[in-house]
Design a protein around this nucleic acid. Structure first.
Lengths: 199, 199
DNA sequence: GATCCGCTGTACCGATCGGTACAGTAACTA
DNA sequence: TAGTTACTGTACCGATCGGTACAGCGGATC
């Protein structure tokens, strides 16, 4: 009997995941278009035949990398649903969740944020849909904060973009085992965003 | 007699600049590695011979695009030198300067922020040197603000990275003729960063 | 009118691009 | 042991890559 839907064994799944992770690292170094199939083969210590047996195509590999991150992001958004605290509390939680993903998957996130324009067709629309879920979650929380009188009358869209910019940008410098932990930085970001930097 | 140092006429200079701008737009659409020379030729309505007469090489074109932006950024930093106001005033000024550049050169900035890892050798080191000038200018202003008691005891490096993230990220959505002007957004960003979002 | 020179298109280069075909191989099953 | 199946390396595909060589063009200069 088939023990999964793909018709492939568990080994296949595990090896595929391994290839995705390794390739994410290579893409993060040289970029998607800048990295050739030959380079991926070498990094994964595989021939082209074997590689394509697992990945299907170069773009499918890119999709797998981005999906991995977006799955986590969407799960994070769900965990910070309405009713799990005040708007500012939820904003703090979401920031922590997001930076945690960023530290756990630095290469995958790098690829996601840098190369998503290379996605085509429905892969692209699917990605944009999920990104919109995340971004509008932030905006909605801020809007709720303003409505509740917890935040002053900021422009929710601009404030959300500021928040997203602060956090997204961390993919360039926040590293596991670095000087600051994801939790540290998330707290400092939240303090800055909510309280400001004024003495 | 030679009327300039390059030995090329003024027409050459003007046409070159035009090619740089057009190519920046193409790169911003398809990425540096994702765009072929043939595509650049078509966009500029030029043969390969003519194109190379002006640009020298593909990477030289990338350098020209990034230099154009960095020249402006460094000039902006110089204009906000110490003694031109309090730290918070200078931070507001720098934000306005930066977002203004971002709106005036949306394509060039896109290329800069996305493709600078493609720079090699001393072109790369030169770029990093100039980027460091900008980033440490932000950090120094914040440090001065804390020292002067104008800002609370934030971690200057993290706060600077938050500030840079907010502003850098705007290259993805801030557009000339869009809903918000660079000045509007700069003010809102500065208010958020300095005063926070709390009511 | 001859000469010169900035500029331009065309033809071409070797290398690499992403991807496919297929023959093998090793391990497991009947 | 015969057959099956998942896996893998090799050879190869046409297309495109970034870049070069060069002949020719037109307009300015003498």
């Amino acid at each position: 009997m088939a023990d999964n839907l793909t018709g492939r064994g568990a080994n296949w799944e595990a090896r595929r995941r391994q290839i995705i992770d390794t390739s994410a690292h290579v893409f993060a170094q040289g970029g998607y278009h800048g990295t050739g199939i030959a380079e991926l083969c070498e990094a994964n210590d595989l021939g082209k035949g074997a590689l394509y047996h697992y990945i299907g195509s170069k773009e499918a590999l890119l999709v797998a990398i981005t999906d991995l991150v977006m799955d986590e992001v969407i799960a994070g958004v769900d965990r910070v649903a309405p009713g799990t605290g005040t708007p500012t509390e939820r904003l703090r939680m979401l920031g922590t969740e997001y930076l945690d993903i960023l530290v756990r998957y630095p290469d995958h996130v790098w690829v996601l944020l840098h190369e998503f324009p290379a996605l085509t067709g429905e892969r692209a629309t699917e990605f944009h849909k999920r990104r919109h879920i995340f971004e509008s979650a932030v905006e909605t929380i801020i809007r709720d904060g303003v409505k509740a009188g917890e935040l002053r009358k900021v422009e929710p869209r601009v404030a959300a973009l500021a928040w997203l910019g602060m956090h997204n940008h961390a993919y360039l410098w926040l590293r596991p085992g670095g000087k600051w932990s994801a939790r540290d930085v998330a707290t400092q970001f939240a303090d800055l965003f909510i309280e400001g930097a004024t003495a």
